[in-house]
Design a protein around this nucleic acid. Structure first.
Lengths: 339, 339
DNA sequence: CTGTTAGCGCATTCAT
DNA sequence: ATGAATGCGCTAACAG
């Protein structure tokens, strides 16, 4: 690879002049020198070496993003979209994404490594939770990062998140508009932060609709198909008159469990028994019945994450460090028509 | 961040000595100096700066991997697994993955950029095809890379691939062992390289089993649910006695299309009508009926990719530059029991 | 306007 | 065994 010296030689100027031209420091060269340099750049096929530039500038133009392994049977339904859009937005801002993994027993260690060795300028943290050790660590270190997802409310850090409360609230109201009054929900365990927002939406919808809340209609379970099945089984053990006519699942995988259990027990999903999921995983439209769900605006989330990171890295004040984006109701067959 | 000078000062030695100790050049320091240095490293909290080290060594310890966007409705069913395992294996070898995107109208340009700016040491190319412009470009440039997937047989480059021919052959033989004799297949368009290997497996199985080949049983379509539906519809327009009793789909999404169309037409998938997919996407086990499929050994693929890359980057001769890994038949409900 | 030069942090050669 | 000095490729301060 040719370097700046080769260009200088080819153009018959000094390396400083080449550097000035390439970095548009227009005060330091004449137009004819510029032509000379650009032509030489073209001739020798020169592109500045990023490593050298980074060493000088004390940066990397790399953003770290950790991908985690999920136990078999689970999966992140929107990970591929997220990674793609994040990469694309990062590139638009002149960055690339550096992928890394972290040990489950000590997540911050991987972040620490990358910081200490100077391999990234910032992080995008995702799949956050209450007392998230990574966020606590990054706050401690005062290292630039943005988060997809919230954590402890008293912690002050920039994040983008889907407004799960609003989303589930909208889902419940939609079901109500179809005529459902016995609407059940499967949440995640209480420790889950995004889970608790979504459950709050369930509660708020009932409050605003004046629907009575029945504690037996709100169950908590883990992110799994089995959890959806078990929850429905529990509801179907109630007297028939108390069976919910609609279920809001906290994510699509749980919704699938509900649909599977319902089908096996002869409950007609989409015809009198409604199921709504959350995430809009790619396969949802091809399920039978196709899955009504709340779509996470992944592209917008990634755009916001990177825009915020740009502001942070350029020391610009953040306009709005806490951004909630509304999910979008995608109506398909599993929610059925009016009762 | 402290640098090597800080350590040298703290240890009362020169920076050269610190460097020697940290790089285990044991010929150049005494044991007691070593202790001195290590203790100073600990005290000031020093970690070598990777950018500086890279500039000196003319490397980046970064492997480029391009993720591509798929049109809505399509998706790469094993991308998240692939990215995770690739990242993990790369880390085990002392590398990280740099994600980037490329424009569909000029894929090599993104690879060229990263090469010219010196941002990566090598690439992992995936989703290859015949006349793949990226592979041709990297071969031209003689830039280190490995591929997940094959391309033109006359091109000489290192790759790992799933043995699609073997996989589909095994699937067909399994169906035959259940008593099926009218086994149909949906392939990808002829231009698809991995598609043609899989179709070859279909043909080989028929040959080895002595089953007659009927041209109407082999259809070609794109990677979509709709394609699976359309293929089944075409077969069901044959006289009933010629309906296939089993379908091998070239990928899970197509298999889902077949299952959906079959269910809607009252054909009992898993009970007399068998469907087998390919890929083992995470959701397959939760479909109704659960999807029998050929599982791609993603973890092993990633391990092989990185092992080969290590050999290449260290100028070691490649033991076996063309590695075919067998997929694994995962029997679930959609293939049913013996006829 | 242009060229010379000093570092960025590190590895390594060459003296001692 | 140790340290001084050089250079990786680049940017930018400074001198001319």
């Amino acid at each position: 690879m040719p370097n700046i010296k080769d260009v200088a030689k080819a153009a018959g100027v000094s390396i400083a002049t080449v550097s000035y031209v390439l970095n548009n420091k227009s005060a330091f060269y004449s137009e004819k020198t510029r032509q000379l340099v650009l032509e030489a750049v073209e001739r020798v096929g020169y592109t500045p070496n990023v490593t050298a530039r980074n060493l000088k500038a004390n940066q990397t133009r790399l953003i770290g993003y950790a991908c985690h392994h999920l136990p078999p049977g689970q999966f992140n339904s929107v990970l591929d979209q997220f990674v793609y859009f994040l990469t694309q937005e990062a590139e638009a801002a002149g960055y690339h994404i550096l992928m890394f993994t972290f040990p489950l027993d000590n997540p911050p260690s991987a972040y620490d490594d990358l910081i200490r060795t100077g391999q990234v300028d910032a992080f995008v943290v995702a799949s956050t939770n209450l007392n998230d050790s990574r966020i606590r660590f990054l706050l401690d270190q005062q290292f630039p990062f943005v988060s997809f997802g919230r954590a402890n409310s008293e912690w002050d850090f920039p994040y983008v998140d889907t407004d799960g409360e609003r989303g589930i609230c909208e889902a419940v109201k939609y079901l109500y508009s179809l005529g459902h009054e016995r609407i059940a929900m499967i949440g995640w365990p209480e420790e889950s932060i995004s889970g608790s927002f979504r459950v709050a939406g369930y509660l708020r919808a009932h409050h605003e609709l004046g629907l009575p809340l029945r504690s037996e209609y709100l169950l908590r379970a883990e992110h799994s198909e089995q959890a959806g099945r078990a929850a429905l089984a529990e509801w179907l053990s109630l007297p028939r008159s108390k069976w919910p006519t609609a279920v809001v699942a906290i994510d699509d995988l749980v919704a699938i469990g509900v649909m599977n259990e319902a089908s096996e027990r002869g409950l007609p999903v989409g015809e009198g028994f409604a199921v709504v999921g959350y995430d809009d995983m790619p396969l949802g439209q091809y399920l039978r019945p196709s899955l009504t769900t709340m779509r996470q605006p992944i592209a917008a989330i990634c755009r916001n994450l990177i825009l915020m990171l740009e502001d942070i890295l350029n020391q610009r004040p953040l306009e709005n460090p806490c951004r909630l984006l509304p999910p979008e109701l995608v109506v398909r067959a599993s929610s059925g028509g009016p009762l």
